[in-house]
Amino acid sequence: MPSVSMTVNGRAVTGDVEGRTLLVQFLRENLSLTGTHVGCDTSQCGACVVHVNGESVKSCTMLAVQADGAEVTTIEGLAKDGELHPMQEAFRENHGLQCGFCTPGMVMSAVDLLQKNPNPDEGEIREWLEGNICRCTGYHNIVKAIQTAAASMKG
C-alpha cells in the first residue's frame, strides 16, 4: 500500500492509502476533514474543491498519491486563529449559502478566482463558477459575496 505525505492546512500528514484512494477520501476518511464534500461522481458539482499547491482542484478527481508532497488547503484551513477569511466573511455577510453543502467548494473556488483575478466583474465571476453547482441560492448572493470579498481584500 503506497504511503503518501503532504502538508494539509499547514500540518504535515502521512498516511497509507491504496492507489485508488481519492484525495477527497484521504481528507475525509484518513484525516477526518469532513468539510470537503462529495456531491457528484462526474467531476462537475465542485463540492469537493480544495487547493493543491495553491490552485483549486476537484479533490474527487485526483488520487491521493497524486498529491504526494503537495501543499493542500481545505475549507478547514482557510480561517486563521478563529478569524474567518474575508471570503468566508463575505459569504456570511451576503447570505451566500443556505444548506451549506456546496459552500466549502464554492468558497475555495472563489478564493482561487480572486488569486487569479482580484477584480472580477459579475460576468467573470459567473463564468468562473461554472465548475460549482449550488441548488439553493440561485447564485445571486454568492456572486455578491465574491464581489464584496474582492473589495475587502483589496483593502
Binding site: 474543491v49 482542484v57 476537484k58 478527481t61 478566482l113 468562473w128 465548475g131 460549482n132
Partner: peptide
C-alpha cells in the same frame, strides 16, 4: 475547456 478546476488539472 471544462471548468476552472478541470483546467487546473
Amino acid at each position: 475547456i471544462g471548468d476552472a478546476q478541470v483546467r487546473n488539472r
